[in-house]
Write a protein that binds this DNA or RNA. Structure first.
Lengths: 359, 359
DNA sequence: ACGCGAAGTGAAAACGTGTTCATTCTAACG
DNA sequence: CGTTAGAATGAACACGTTTTCACTTCGCGT
């Protein structure tokens, strides 16, 4: 129900209660108390404006006493900058995403921005209604964790906002996806980590390797599967057995049961993400009665905080979260400070973290 | 670095780039295309205003074609309503909190609001700088997951916003905390769940019961510890052994080691939250070589999604998340629609969910 | 045909801020 | 002392919307 009509204010009309605009401390009040013009107050809060230093200090001091800060709504109206960054997620609870939101919020907060959170459907689709709804809040930039929306669609709905696009090249050559000419991009290079993982598994003699997938057609899933397929082919291994899943614990659990009961099992299992790997591990150990790593080896993707918990102790392909978030914030700020710069790129590497589920 | 001066815009001055205010679709354009006045467009988006039905439809149709939605900043400026709800958390990744944020965001989105996320320090302190920073964004309401801030402080910094206060009565009589006269409140009644848990443990013969705590002096932790102490006393059990922790997996893990290596162990362990219980379980099983539930029984608090995962399969005191979030949203909306109503209350019950870590 | 309350309409003011532009002040230099 | 470039200043306008208020139109009963 985020149709246009839901922008309508429920119940009584908006300004019926006049107390709302009553208690506000405005720049004019500060100006009075400091015996300066209202413009001076504005300048005191904006650097790179000429204002006598002592005057600026006086104003800031009085402002602090009166708990005054410039109204963001008014500021946004005239400047066209809301200092809000929209974040779209299918599921805040997903461990990787919640950790990324956490770090992103901290970083943005340090730069004078705030995180505006929106939820879309968990099937990774992002409908235009949500985009229109979000646009109503005028975010300066948008980070979409939902990956099957075309950059062009994003751009059409976010006239002023700067979308940041996360790209997973499926092979090293695939460096020019359909992002259009002017989209900032973060490239997540997965080859290194996947190669290390496959080499390790092969070293332990694994040949039948399965892939418990993520949400079908999501970019992260497709890229991981293709990279795995590529690396395995290069090393002379048969193609991976695909066990369809959706990044969730429960479906990965079920997919693992099917894999062993209907498909003949595997020597090793790649899960599309760590949470899925937990489901795989629990299915193997607690329902199929198999030992890890003795009978089956398991590798995940992400290296979320839970992966070092003793019950799982997962070997996994690590995406450095801090690197990723600081790259994102760098992209956002550079674009906001320089709207006409050519498309920017950041690149993120991966590597294998070896724990107890292999060898 | 969210001091007042951080409200200053970094780098170049705000409106240097004039393209920013260029591409906007305004009410005036819609008015032109529809051959009506600009006021009519405004009315079309506000119910309970008189406007001929066919005119309203025409305007909404054209607006949809042009992807127009009323500018929230302008709307906020005049109405004093931002349609933003501030949410303060120490850690987005905490499972319980991320699940609550997720549900809250969905509910608010359905009501035409959006979630504005802020992070505070993980020691549960909430400093005034953060409050001032958040207030700059003019949230209509604030949900603070951080619990050791006095409602009076919250109110002082949020002149227009409506704070929602979450209260954990430590006993059934403690019904009037220091929330001041005019604060909406959600009471979380923990007695029922704790009584069921203690009865169950006692039924299995447990006498030495330990409590692996949450963050010291946080309200949730204090309330849980006191309720446990009360119920155990009523049932003739010795007071719980306190193992100091902070809601985290790692500290709960360490606290459990200390409990058994230095303090003589226990028959059963209450953890202040589910994540802590996971740490307890892993320490018992993977480092101390004890069996659960045969040697030690474990109970958690919250019933987060991970608690049914096979590796933990935790018996826990459940707070119904959907009930909790809909109560929160109910409080927020009722207060916003009726600012002068007397203090509102919602009450939340708990109950025990029995799984594999007891009996 | 008349009267009258209700519904519909648009001009103008308001919300709180940032920016432009013309003017005044300051300081450094010849 | 006179000149001048640059800093400092404030009046007026702009941002896009909602609300007020005075005005017009509509519908209906007599």
């Amino acid at each position: 129900m985020y149709t246009i009509s839901s922008l309508q204010v429920r119940g009584r009309s908006v300004n019926e209660d006049t107390r709302l605009t009553q208690g506000r401390v405005t720049a004019a009040m500060i100006a009075d108390r400091a015996n300066v013009s209202r413009v001076a107050v504005s300048r005191a809060f904006n650097p790179h404006t000429s204002l006598k230093a002592e005057k600026r200090e006086l104003i800031l001091r009085i402002a602090q006493e009166l708990n005054y800060t410039p109204d963001r709504a008014a500021r946004a109206l005239v400047s066209g900058r809301s200092h809000l960054v929209g974040v779209i997620v299918p599921d805040v609870c997903s461990h990787w995403e919640s950790q990324e939101i956490d770090a992103l919020t901290t970083a943005l907060q340090n730069e004078g921005f705030a995180t505006l959170l929106f939820k879309t459907r968990t099937d990774f689709s992002m409908d235009e209604k949500l985009l229109a709804y979000m646009r109503g809040f005028n975010p300066d930039s948008v980070v979409a964790f939902v990956e099957n929306v075309k950059p062009a669609t994003l751009a059409r709905f976010l006239d002023r906002a700067v979308p940041i696009y996360v790209h997973y090249p499926s092979s090293d050559e695939d460096d020019q996806p359909e992002t259009g000419p002017l989209h900032d991009r973060m490239n997540v290079l997965q080859r290194a980590g996947v190669e290390q993982a496959v080499a390790l598994l092969q070293g332990y003699g694994a040949r039948r390797i399965a892939y418990v997938s993520g949400v079908n057609k999501s970019r992260a899933n497709t890229a991981r599967e293709q990279m795995l397929r590529l690396v395995m082919a290069e090393r002379g291994l048969p193609p991976p057995i695909i066990a369809p899943s959706d990044f969730s614990y429960d479906r990965a659990y079920g997919a693992t049961l099917d894999l062993f009961r209907l498909e003949g099992g595997a020597d090793a299992i790649f899960a599309a993400n760590d949470v899925g790997a937990f489901g795989v591990l629990d299915a193997l150990r607690h329902e199929l009665g198999l030992r890890v790593p003795e009978d089956v080896k398991v590798v995940g993707f992400d290296d979320i905080a839970q992966s070092h918990w003793k019950s799982y102790n997962l070997t996994t392909v690590k995406f450095d979260l801090k690197d990723r978030v600081s790259a994102l914030v760098r992209l956002i700020l550079r674009r906001l400070n320089n709207p006409d710069a050519p498309a920017l790129q950041e690149t993120l590497q991966t590597r294998l973290v070896v724990r107890g589920t292999v060898g």
